[in-house]
Design a protein around this nucleic acid. Structure first.
Length: 111
DNA sequence: AGGGTGACTGCTA
DNA sequence: GTAGCAGCCACCC
């Protein structure tokens, strides 16, 4: 299971670190930052992220503006953790699990 | 080399 | 609101 990140994954993590606290991006946006047309591949990289939350993978959400997954889980206590992590940065989700303030969602990863 | 998997996306119903 | 499906791409057999 555990292994060193591939070059692709390292690029993804590097781009991810440019997302400021208090903001979020979609898997798609993060993919565009590293030249990957598949959000699913990005999700794979996140799922394997060995550095959470050092590398802020909790700032990546699906285009549906829901919470998505965290640390391998798509529906579990980890999601609550992700939600609280984001709340502590000022990014809040409602009871339905949907992002409240859409203006916090960046359309592209900063340089 | 080929097939299966998945923290996705967009469309359809 | 939900469910299913095709397309997507990196990774792991």
């Amino acid at each position: 299971m555990d292994r060193e990140p591939t070059r692709f994954e390292s690029r993804v993590y590097e781009a991810l670190c440019r997302v400021p606290a208090g903001n979020v991006v979609t898997y798609k946006v993060l993919g565009e930052a590293v030249g990957c047309a598949s959000g699913q591949a990005i999700g794979n990289a996140m799922r394997r992220n060995p550095f959470a939350p050092e590398v802020p993978c909790h700032r990546v959400i699906p285009a549906t503006l829901r919470l998505g997954g965290f640390m391998g889980d798509v529906r579990g206590d980890s999601i609550v953790r992700k939600r609280e992590l984001l709340a502590s940065e000022g990014v809040e989700f409602n009871e339905m699990g949907v992002l409240m303030d859409v203006s916090l969602l960046l359309e592209r990863v900063p340089d």
